[in-house]
Design a protein around this nucleic acid. Sequence first.
DNA 1: CTCCAGTACG
DNA 2: CGTACCGGAG
Length: 214
Amino acid sequence: MSTSQRLNELYERLLEAYGPLNWWPGDSPFEVMVGAVLTQNTNWGNVEKAIANLKEAGALSLAAMSRLEPARLAGLIRPAGYYNLKAKRLANLLAMINQRYEGDLEWLFASPLEEMRRALMEVKGVGPETADSICLYAADKPVFVIDAYTFRILGRHGLAEEDMGYFELQELFMDALPHDPAMFNQFHAMLVHLGKDRCKKSNPRCEGCPAQDW
DNA sequence: CTCCAGTACG
DNA sequence: CGTACCGGAG
């Protein structure tokens, strides 16, 4: 079976097992974008606490967050860990949008995928996964997000080599699947769910896994 | 490869 | 207690 066929089969299996997941949690595109930075190497539960703090402080908008003192922002996002680093990364991101897009999120999100992606990647602290997460989940653009779960799951099933990079793995998916944001969203969401639920780093639960014998 | 750094869970 | 967490930069 070809790689493309295998990926499509995995999608069908996961959809059968999990159904529609309706990702990414967030009340607004701005909140989704902020969440993408805060969740870098961090448990989502901790990110939710940080976002709750930002909401309470009325800081969950581009204009409001841009006006915060760095130390104040860091204090609010403390529960997400790496708070000094992430406060700086958020500030870098907001500065880019304020400068290049005149503080207009709609403008950034309405620009073509490749342009938006490049603009995000130029921000210090925004790498490929964070940029793609923002493009897909905040701006609804057709790009497949690769993460540690995807590497682990595909590695364990012989579809990803040890030395494979982010873009190589992304190509695998983008070449095999229709470029549909809703489908990419659902697929990645299910991979994350599978990674948490079954394909854990240690003690994976393979019995009864939707991807068993895949 | 190391640092960043708080939280939850076994 | 150790491990892991929807990574990225130096």
